[in-house]
């Protein structure tokens, strides 16, 4: 067993809803990881278990809905390309991934990483090497965009008119 996977310094087993919430957070991050980030993590792993493909990787469409007036009844705005994959590791762990775009390799890698993360030890490694830095990168990008937008905020001032 790879010693890194046994590192006790990371979060222990999570139960029930907490586990689900964590998986959602991880999958949301994986959907935003670049192909390179996913490849780098995978290439850096000492233990690369084989996987079988349960479905995909495949590209399809999701119909994106909006709401009338922003908050009213839903309507169909248009579609977006989505790639997804579901895989199973030799130990039985199943992983899924969905992401915008047509990168099927990225979807398959993300699904493998999701399956690996079913094991708490492995997840700790994945969190260290991919998820945490990725979350930081995304937060920094969002903050950068917000600051750039904030710099274009209009500061109104009223001209003093000539009356006393």
């Amino acid at each position: 067993m790879n010693t890194a996977f046994a590192d006790p310094g990371h979060a222990g087993p999570a139960g029930g809803g907490e586990e689900e919430a964590r998986r959602k957070r991880d999958l949301d991050l994986l959907a935003r990881a670049s192909r390179t980030e996913l490849e780098d993590l995978w290439n850096g792993l000492d233990d690369k278990p084989a996987h079988t493909r349960l479905r995909g990787p495949e590209t399809g469409l999701v119909m994106v809905r909006g709401r009338i007036g922003g908050g009213g009844a839903p309507f169909n705005l248009g579609e977006a390309t989505v790639s997804r994959a579901s895989v199973q590791l030799a130990d039985g762990a199943v992983g899924h991934a969905y992401r915008l775009g047509t990168d099927r390799r990225a979807a398959e890698l993300a699904a493998i990483i999701d399956a690996l993360a079913r094991d708490d030890g492995r997840r700790a490694v994945i969190a260290d090497r991919l998820l945490t830095p990725l979350a930081e990168r995304l937060a920094a990008e969002a903050a950068g965009r917000a600051e750039e937008t904030a710099a274009t905020k209009v500061d109104f001032f009223t001209m003093v008119r000539g009356e006393d």
Binding site: R65, R67, P74
Partner: peptide, 18 residues
Amino acid sequence: LPRFGTSVPLETGRMQVE
């Protein structure tokens, strides 16, 4: 392309405004 399904309606109120 096949259609996988339909999204949850977009929350434009939660937009990262640019």
